[in-house]
Amino acid sequence: MTAALDLVVAPGDGALITVPEGGRLRIVDLHGNQAVDTLLYDAADIDNRYSAFDTVREQGAVYLTTGSRLLSTALDELAVITDDTCGRHDTVGGACSQESNVIRYGEHTRHQHACRQTFLRYGAAKGIGQRQLGHNINFFMNVPVDAAGTLRFDDGLSAPGKHVELTASRDILVLISNCPQLNNPCNGWNPTAVQLIGWWA
């Protein structure tokens, strides 16, 4: 099948993609260890949006991988991860924002570019504002949690050319921020481009 979408997203840039039911969207980590912050919305109702904690609870596990059903705030299945050569992905670490950068790294990071701006900029076309920014998926990001209740950001498990693929369970909007974070290892200290490839009729 010819790809309906083939788009390279530069580091710090984003995209808003409509994927029809049954469509497949592949995200390729071209250069390795690049966090791709991702939100999903029911294309017919942006308030029926991806819910990280409903997804985690219903699958009974924290990390996302092949087979993970990505659920909405109304428990509708928005998409399923149908292929994953990386192995696991985070959905509890959230996105970076200027404000959370200040908390985590100090006032000198206040004016660094962050995912929240990208989400708001690309989401605006579909009416996605701050109220609609739920807790996102971080594809290719490694946020280990353990039995002692600790959580940390580690070096990625990803590598150049690894990919993850979603199959849409209904018509969805996929809002992506190719993370510009420079202050932790989530992008290997060097944000790089990713590729989006879509197959649908």
Partner: peptide, 16 residues
């Protein structure tokens, strides 16, 4: 409008 953000709370304080 501003609201509790669990991901920011847990990642900033390294707790699950």
């Amino acid at each position: 409008l501003d609201r509790l953000n669990i991901p920011d709370t847990v990642k900033s304080q390294m707790s699950a």
